[in-house]
Design a protein around this nucleic acid. Sequence first.
DNA 1: CGTTTCGTTGATAGTACTCAAGTGGTGTGG
DNA 2: CCACACCACTTGAGTACTATCAACGAAACG
Lengths: 248, 248
Amino acid sequence: MTIILQNAMSETANRDRAGELPVARLTGTDAALREYATPVRVRRRQRLALDQPTPDTVYIVRSGLLGIEAAIAGKPRQLLELFYPGDIIRRANMPPLPHATLTALNVSEVWRLPARGFEALLTANADQNASMQRRLGEQHARASLHASIIGALSGDERFASLLIELGLRIGLRGAAGIGIDNPLSRTDIADYLALNPDTLSRITSRFRARGLLIHLGSGQILLPNWEELCAASPIAATLQALHTPTLG
Amino acid sequence: MTIILQNAMSETANRDRAGELPVARLTGTDAALREYATPVRVRRRQRLALDQPTPDTVYIVRSGLLGIEAAIAGKPRQLLELFYPGDIIRRANMPPLPHATLTALNVSEVWRLPARGFEALLTANADQNASMQRRLGEQHARASLHASIIGALSGDERFASLLIELGLRIGLRGAAGIGIDNPLSRTDIADYLALNPDTLSRITSRFRARGLLIHLGSGQILLPNWEELCAASPIAATLQALHTPTLG
DNA sequence: CGTTTCGTTGATAGTACTCAAGTGGTGTGG
DNA sequence: CCACACCACTTGAGTACTATCAACGAAACG
């Protein structure tokens, strides 16, 4: 099965994807951005400084997968938000919760900008400004949807929604289904979906029994039945809209 | 008690507040904004068009209190986000969920701008751009915190957090405690906190028994013990940071 | 003054959490 | 090569919390 995945043609091969090599092609606006930015490569589980709100560094994801962690006093750790290539990360957009850290969930490359440079870039270039605005709006929509998922969906539905999101973002279409490489750890998923790790384990067992999920080992999973997986989440259409790259 | 509230001096009287008269004083940036904007007055429960994502109208709250509602298929209605004076509302920042509507939760005034006018405003004025960016960032932080609240806190803690938020935003400090005028309906609160209305009723009963909440009738409530209320929420400090107006 | 709507409360059921024991894979040392 | 420890994960039993359903009470409205 793994071989099938590796050789499979992906329908989404023309866009950035977590876990792949950093994109080399630069658009015009990317080149302008590059002048202000410092490229930073991070390994898996590496943390990026996010504690001090005053300097307010801006990160722009080039490749890989990152996440914001935080913990409310006396409560288990939470994974607040996931960041994909193109996303903009800054402390001021996150709630001032204790132990808020930006962590690379996979090997990633980000561009680091001082807040002043970011602001200067936006005011200098109207197109750049509009595209950043649009991207921040998408991220806001995703954050709001995440609250909706946690508040309204059952555990099974939450997990199905995450699998759909990951499939759309970093999935590779193969003959046996959609393969996902290097996903989040079980603890990460539990923290993201506001579930207990034990409960999540029960859910994954149910999904395997239903034929929705196959564990391939070493962090590789396979989604053999995309149709039925989408049927298991009441927001499959919304996820499709938010996690498919806009062509414009 | 009502009289006490009406005559009470408020420590926060110098800022916009829901339920009061629209602010009349315009700063320089406000005046620039005003050229592009159409003022719209809405009564309680009035809905504003938000369905079509293409024209993407931008609303800026001048006074009052509004909220975004949505419903996932087969699930109860949700109140995704609350908007206070100064907030920026646009469809593109919200997830594409069915039945998404913008509703005035109190008598309010908003400024309506076409998306093009909003963009033009931002590119024309760097200060305006920076301040809008900052505001959108705050709103993002609040949306993210809301997910955190729903995901990690118990029903009692969620309700305490909402009372603190409302107290900070629209509360009037009186001799008997902090009074709040015209709050959300019971259903609104339940939909916002991702709780069942019946469960919420039990929680309010507990809060009254604990001396944290007094119902005054006709939508007026009183928080007699702010200290203890803050102790009932693990994120009181975070709420304070996000819902106190920045002096800059 | 009836009707309607909203809010409260009790009994019951469902779901997820907690704690604990068990399983499987991996790496290390004998 | 095997024994062992270690870790992540799984699974079972009991518990806590919230949802559901139904009945009741109170306030608003015509």
